[in-house]
Nucleic acid binder design. Structure first.
Lengths: 339, 339
DNA sequence: CCTGGTTGCGCAAGCGTTTGCGTTCAGATT
DNA sequence: AATCTGAACGCAAACGCTTGCGCAACCAGG
């Protein structure tokens, strides 16, 4: 039926051990013999059974990647980049998409990943319990989100600095009432929304602007949430003249809300996002870009390095560069007609 | 070190076979014994080694999913939905991201998937050779793209009918010069662009409009490609007054090109897309929606059905409903000032 | 009390690799 | 010429699980 290692051993007239060594480039096989074996194996269309080989060797040559939503641009992009690195290095990737609470719970209680992977890249923010579960796997861990976490190799960006750039831009344009559409603040372990908020507050303080809690609305990192949040802000007695959205998706939701309210951007309201979503250029959104694919690549590379070399996790997160991108959704506040 | 089945067996005072049967719900174990074993296993934190179990049983409880680009909205969304179905059924998913030609070649020559999966869902269009390679795996196959293919369970949409809807809408508005931004026409096995083009041609013929090859530009299914294509169309001696883009991404590129040319949408040019991308609503794009996630779910379900029941592939593709969505990028042609 | 059929469980043979160790043999060293 | 060395390869024991078969023990029917 399907060709096994002994088939190619017999066909070559050697033992299975020699075939194994030859095919995996291990020493102890003469070059001519190796060549013959490789040829015969190719001829027979032999591929080693991963199950058998990982059972015998303990290595799976598989990386587990766990993400909250593969469908979302950010995660899809990171995954895309990371997968390329892994597969180029000969690793397969096992995907766990943990969007729903049930899926998440099932994953962390049953840990189907156990004994199945050599390392894991987590793109979701584990709570302390979940992090402990991952650590208990005893394999190298990495992440590109949520900041430092013991045992994890983390590559990220300067969220606070990025937010400062965005908000400072608005301040420099002359805005004083600056709203913020923030991300889900629920999981406290997930520092990104907190850091971005801090950047926002820092700049306000710097500019001598009194922060106003009413100007912060939660958008849950989705387009719809952004729209809702913007709608809330517009319902305020004194709506903001500019809005900093903690993600481009939420910024786009805000744009939609503004259009529904027949408000012009940037004439009536300025909007600045964060992330540089692939479609942000299309809508002309001013934003701060983070190298999403590069983060995935880097995290994957570091993970592989830990796998092949000494398994040491750097204490400080790797920080990737960010870049402010001026486009068309920001302008000085409209001092003329007031709503 | 890590707890194995014999550990559970010893701790319970039974044999490993009984533990195996008990944990997998096989007959031949009394209920009270099963309960005890389950309890002990949970206590010890036992998880069966997949490698060992699939080596012994031949089943991997893993589905291979191969996609061209995980990062792109369409594929990410299909994958997201399919993964949920698979994991809920107890299957893991092995992801192969074959964007680059090298990755693709490596995959199809080495077929690392062999002996690693129980079934595969392919979201890329295999050429005949690649399709044969997949068939040679001897496992159930499914796809959500590219139409009928022997051996594959396929779930798709009525591409031709959808295109007809879109173009008829433009015709009804009074447009006569209707351009088309088409998808990559390269792989001939991939029928979607052809079908959508046919729908376009059908409606033109129906309306007594002479098709003009100059009005078709290739956008390669990307935002940038769409922008280039639109730019080409605008450079024409008689540019179209409306454009049908075969995908929303290309439509968005077209919108960008139009904005760059200081043309208003829909006053100067109407644009209609195809797919209903998650951000199409944000930009107000008129389009024809296809149920992307639902297709992924359905394909996954059918695949699992083939896996558990009799392995029969339905001869006709499953067709999911489409829906025309009128938004704000289409209007009657501007008969006033002409460029 | 002896059959014949269940039911519940253990035995042991795999599944296809990897790998430590042992063997053989040619060539180099004394 | 006897010994040592290293390279090239084979043997066989894992790795952790599944599963066909066998074997007690038990129950009901004659």
């Amino acid at each position: 039926m399907t060709v096994s290692i002994t088939d190619v051993a017999e066909a070559t007239g050697v033992s299975a051990s020699t075939v194994s060594r030859a095919l995996r480039g291990r020493p102890g096989v003469s070059e001519e013999m190796r060549a013959r074996i490789v040829e015969v194996a190719a001829e027979l269309g032999y591929t080693a059974s991963r199950s058998a080989s990982s059972l015998a060797s303990g290595r799976t040559y598989t990386i587990g990647v766990v993400v909250p939503y593969v469908g979302r641009w950010f995660f899809g992009t990171v995954l895309d980049a990371a997968e390329k690195v892994f597969s180029a290095a000969g690793y397969d990737v096992l995907l766990y998409n943990l969007g729903s609470p049930e899926a998440r719970k099932r994953f962390f209680t049953k840990l189907p990943i156990r004994k199945r992977v050599d390392a894991v890249l987590s793109l979701l923010i584990p709570d302390p319990e979940e992090a402990a579960a991952l650590c208990s796997l005893g394999v190298p861990l990495a992440t590109t989100v949520g900041g430092a976490r013991p045992g994890f190799t983390v590559v990220g960006i300067d969220d606070r600095g990025g937010a400062e750039n965005a908000v400072r831009h608005l301040v420099n344009l002359g805005h004083r009432r600056i709203g913020m559409i923030s991300g889900a603040s629920e999981p406290l372990h997930w520092t990104t929304p907190l850091d971005r908020r801090q950047g926002y507050l820092d700049v306000l303080a710097d500019a001598g602007i009194e922060p106003d809690a009413a100007l912060e609305a939660d958008g849950g990192y989705t387009v719809e949430g952004g729209e809702r949040a913007m709608t809330e802000l517009l319902a305020l007695r004194h709506p903001p003249t500019a809005v900093f959205a903690q993600s481009d998706e939420m910024a786009m939701g805000a744009l939609r809300a503004l259009r529904r309210h027949r408000l012009r951007v940037p004439e009536d309201v300025s909007v600045v996002g964060f992330d540089d979503h692939e479609l942000s250029e299309v809508v002309g959104l001013t934003t701060v870009a983070q190298p999403v694919a590069a983060q995935g690549r880097e995290a994957a590379r570091l993970l592989l390095a830990r796998l092949e070399g000494p398994n040491t996790v750097s204490p400080r997160p790797v920080e990737m560069p960010i870049r402010f991108i001026l486009r068309e959704t920001t302008a000085p506040p409209h001092t003329g007609r007031q709503r």
